[in-house]
Measured scan of single mutants.
Amino acid sequence: TEEYEYTDEQQAREAAREWREKGYTVTIEEHNGRWRVKTG
């Protein structure tokens, strides 16, 4: 599992979409105004 943090929701969603296209399972969670994208 890798985790990436973004301050911008749009960036987080874009990144998540790219990971999904590569076949990863992706979770996005908002935490204190930051967006965490977890792949695994």
Rank of each mutant, 00 (worst) to 15 (best):
D8V: 05
A15E: 04
V26F: 02
A16K: 02
R17S: 08
Y4F: 13
E3R: 07
T27D: 06
V37T: 02
T1W: 15
G23P: 00
Q11W: 05
T1F: 14
E2K: 14
I28D: 00
R34Y: 11
T27W: 13
W19E: 02
T1N: 12
R36D: 03
G33D: 04
G33F: 03
Y6K: 01
R34Q: 08
V37E: 00
W35S: 00
G23T: 01
Y24I: 06
E29Y: 15
W19A: 05
R34G: 09
R13S: 06
H31G: 05
W19D: 01
G40R: 14
K22I: 04
W35V: 01
T27G: 03
Q11P: 03
E2W: 15
I28P: 00
E9R: 05
Q11F: 06
R20N: 06
Y4T: 07
E30Q: 11
A16N: 01
D8T: 14
E18A: 13
R36Y: 15
R36Q: 11
E5Y: 15
G40F: 15
E18W: 14
T27V: 12
E21T: 07
T25L: 11
T25V: 12
E29R: 08
T39I: 15
Q11I: 08
T7F: 12
A15G: 04
E9L: 12
Q10H: 12
R36P: 01
A15M: 07
K38Y: 11
E18M: 14
V26M: 02
I28Y: 03
G40Y: 15
E29A: 07
V26G: 01
T7Y: 11
E29F: 13
E14G: 05
W35Q: 00
K38G: 04
T7H: 10
Q10F: 12
G40M: 15
A12L: 02
Y24R: 04
R20K: 10
Q11S: 14
D8E: 07
V26L: 02
Y4H: 08
G40H: 15
E18P: 04
W19P: 01
Y4D: 05
E30I: 09
A12N: 00
T27N: 06
G33I: 01
E21L: 11
Y24E: 03
D8C: 04
A15Q: 07
H31Q: 09
T39L: 15
R20E: 14
E30Y: 15
R20G: 06
Y6M: 02
T39Y: 12
R34A: 10
W35K: 00
K38I: 15
T39R: 14
K38L: 12
H31M: 09
G33P: 00
R17Q: 11
E29I: 12
A16S: 04
V37W: 02
G33L: 03
Y4L: 08
E21V: 07
H31W: 10
R36N: 08
A12C: 04
K22E: 04
W19K: 04
A12W: 01
W35D: 00
E29T: 13
E18K: 13
R20L: 13
R17K: 12
E2G: 14
I28M: 06
E3Y: 15
Y6D: 01
K22G: 04
E2V: 14
I28G: 00
E3P: 07
E18D: 09
E2D: 13
R17N: 10
K22V: 03
E3K: 06
K22Y: 05
